[in-house]
Amino acid sequence: MDSDPLIRQQLDAELAARLQRVTARTSRATPPNSTPTSRPAATARTTSPRIASSPPPPPPPGAGPARKKRRHPARHSRSAALALSFVTTTGLAYAFAATNNSASANVAAPAGLVGSSQPVAAPATTAAPNTTAPAATTAPTTAPATTAPATTAAPATPTVVNGASVRNRYGNVQVQATFAADGTLTNVDVLEAPSRDGQSVQINNYAVPRLNSEALTAQSANVNTISGATYTSMGYAQSLQSAIDVARANGLTTIS
């Protein structure tokens, strides 16, 4: 990874120093005269394993699943989305404000972007929330909207509601939510986002799409494999991945 010998040298020196701290901590934790039974390793096997030498024994036949109580995820998610939709978009704007504050430390401002102002103002349609383009690609908006009265469209058509304009340390943030006739939140657009300098533009590029989050809805689809923790053999036995493996061993290429 590092062909530069000087960088390699510095890296190795830092690595050696870290390892020294590790061994110092370890020798403090386990004094030389400690008995073998006091070794932390003996008890630590029950904690969450990332890498283990031997798999735990397979579950006994008839062993119940780890989770006793299971909600119906789809129903839960739908009601969550609905509930969220009636909370005013102000909440989203506040979330966004917090987002920007936390993002500031990580983002550098490329000189070329300084001065360009690119708040997101995608038209409020029924498009899926995550299809909103990143801030940099949309047309600039100049209207410095202040506070926001809710605007309501004709009945039985999508309702568009503007959230209050919320000020954070980078400027004002205002979002616009679109609700379907049945009250489902179908889209969130950012009407106003801070863009006073290059740093803010950068933050917008990364942070604005964060508003395009969704309440989870459980999906079932043809897949070949599953990502998600199955750290233990027990977990594996109950996993969708094990079902896929069985299906695959029987010559099937996907499951649904």
Binding site: P65, R71, H76, Q219, N222, V223, T225, I226, L240
Partner: peptide, 15 residues
Amino acid sequence: WRVGIRHPESTHELA
């Protein structure tokens, strides 16, 4: 290749 991302509340459903 299609990879299902596990739903956090259910071992048998996907997010």
